[in-house]
Design a binder for these strands. Structure first.
Length: 259
DNA sequence: ATGGCCCGTAGAACGGGA
């Protein structure tokens, strides 16, 4: 099956892109971030019509996450859980569900704004709480788990178009990268790096300064899988095509094949 | 030239994104 993540930066604006992309790729599971829709405005009918079941959690203006599943292949998401039970949070950044025998966690990690801001401290606390929550779910005999989303972390300098300019800045700072490494040490694998990839592979480009055309981006959107899934992942790539469209999201989808 | 764009909520600018 194909499982993917995409920060759409408003599902209201990007719904046509999402529907086109689902039809073109045949993706079975799509995790969305930054839907920016309250639940009463979520486009259930259009997605149902397109053959997808949905689980979602939104709020006005900011954040918002969803999991879309292809009805004919993987059925509806079950055991849906909103948020991290160990972290009180008014911001809608986490939704998880059981899909085709896999615990799928869709996450919109905080941005952090800048390393000297309160938002950065919130980001680190949010990350610590995620780690605490996931740790017992990643024990050696644990069931398959996939963590997908906009991590707002570039794990390595090769994930950054200009590492010197971004050094110790938000998205690249050591405390954030250490927490990403903690997820890895707990058994989560960056699916993208299981395979040979083009140099300068990024998943986000600023809307300004023709950053996409100049490929001045960051790789901050990730598909991570637990060790139980490692041998079942046969491909992972970033699809730049939607970023080339008119009125695109600033993020590209990341898609993995799990057999 | 240290800002340029885009989105939602507004109903004019502003906060937030990354």
């Amino acid at each position: 099956m194909k499982i993917a993540t995409w920060n759409v930066n408003s599902l209201k604006v990007r719904l046509p892109h999402v529907l086109d992309w689902l039809a073109q790729t045949g993706t079975d599971v799509l995790c969305l971030q930054e839907t920016k829709l309250t639940d009463d405005k979520f486009p259930v009918a259009a997605l149902t019509e397109a053959g997808y079941e949905v689980a979602f959690s939104g709020q006005p203006t900011y954040n918002g996450v969803a999991i879309l599943t292809k009805r004919d292949t993987v059925g509806a998401p079950t055991e849906v859980l909103i948020g991290n039970p160990q972290f009180e949070d008014e911001q809608k950044r986490l939704i998880s569900a059981q899909v085709a025998g896999i615990r799928v966690i869709c996450a919109y990690f905080p941005n952090g704004q800048s390393v000297d801001s309160d938002k950065y401290q919130y980001k680190l606390r949010w990350l610590d709480a995620l780690i605490s929550w996931l740790r017992p779910q990643l024990q050696a005999d644990a069931a398959p788990l996939a963590l997908l989303g906009d991590f707002n972390i570039a794990p390595d300098d090769r994930d950054v178009h200009d590492p010197q300019a971004w050094a110790d800045q938000v998205l690249c700072s050591e405390p954030e990268r250490q927490r990403f490494e903690m997820l890895q040490s707990m058994g989560l694998i960056d699916a993208f790096r299981l395979f040979e990839q083009p140099e300068k592979s990024y998943s986000w480009w600023d809307y300004r300064q023709m950053a996409f055309r100049r490929n001045k981006g960051l790789r901050i959107d990730h598909v991570m899988v637990s060790s139980a899934l490692r041998d079942r992942v046969s491909a992972c790539s970033i699809d730049r095509e939607p970023r080339k469209r008119e009125q695109p999201s600033d993020h590209a989808p990341v898609i993995a094949q799990i057999d």
